[in-house]
């Protein structure tokens, strides 16, 4: 879930200078500054559109920094009580029906999560944008009736899934409304749309995010943030394997 936060949590955006595009790198730094909160808790619904049926999951997630996260499935009933723990680049999954803790190996993380348009790795990618990408503002465009900066991101570190990204950042509310992920060759691979932007505390938040694999047919995967809280008390023992079985 980290990546979602990384994408849309933007606060305290630099005031704009009229007639001149702001510095892209600056934008990224601010995104990073603002996305890293001590910890957070949120409840979300993930809607996966299959060819035959759509499936909705309800999850609650705790995160701390950019390396730890803990997710519990609330719905559907079959999945209830399933928990996922992520520490750095390791992932454990606990299933109450089997009463087992399974470790997901590195190469498995590239597989898609539950038939969705996201891989485990997509979900776990959490490094700071400014530490991976150079950025340049290349123009302005209206998205969903809002004026946005178009920010082109190019990776300067080699070990990265997407070499290029393109963000449409709301000029007033300082939150990307659309994100496109490109292959090195320039082919568009994935598109993310963020909508239902709400204000939570000092931050602007999307209520809904739609992920779409652009190479394949289908309606994509929807993520709805039902509730989110920042900087709350999260006991450290939550991020341990012992808590998986509780």
């Amino acid at each position: 879930m980290k990546k979602l936060l990384l994408v849309f949590i933007i606060t305290g955006f630099t005031p704009l200078l009229f007639g001149q595009y702001p510095d892209g790198k600056d934008i990224l730094r601010k995104i990073d500054d603002n996305m890293i909160s001590e910890n957070r808790y949120y409840e979300s619904s993930m809607i996966i559109h299959g060819r035959r049926t759509s499936l909705t999951f309800k999850l609650k997630t705790w995160t701390a920094g950019d390396t730890k996260s803990f997710t519990e499935y609330l719905f559907p009933v079959r999945e209830k009580g399933t928990k996922m723990l992520k520490l750095d680049d390791q992932l454990w999954i606990y299933s109450p029906s089997a009463d087992r803790i399974i470790q997901i190996a590195g190469h498995m993380l590239r597989q898609s999560v539950m038939g969705s348009d996201l891989s485990y790795e997509d979900l776990m990618e959490d490094s700071k944008l400014s530490e991976q990408y150079n950025a340049k503002v290349s123009g302005e465009e209206v998205v969903d009736g809002r004026k946005c900066w178009i920010v082109d991101l190019t990776a300067f570190v080699p070990e990265i899934a997407y070499h290029r990204k393109k963000l449409w950042v709301d000029q007033e509310r300082n939150i990307p409304l659309q994100e496109e992920l490109f292959a090195k060759s320039g082919t568009l691979l994935k598109r993310t749309r963020l909508s239902e932007i709400r204000r939570i505390n000092e931050r602007w938040y999307p209520g809904k995010i739609l992920f779409k694999d652009m190479l394949k047919d289908g309606q994509g995967t929807e993520l709805v943030i039902d509730e989110i809280r920042f900087n709350i008390e999260v006991p450290d023992h939550i991020f341990s394997k012992a808590s998986l079985k509780k």
Binding site: T53, S95, D99, G115
Partner: peptide, 11 residues
């Protein structure tokens, strides 16, 4: 994964 795409563990 189940036929609906859910993650599943079975002993």
């Amino acid at each position: 994964t189940t036929m609906y795409g859910e993650f599943t563990l079975h002993n």
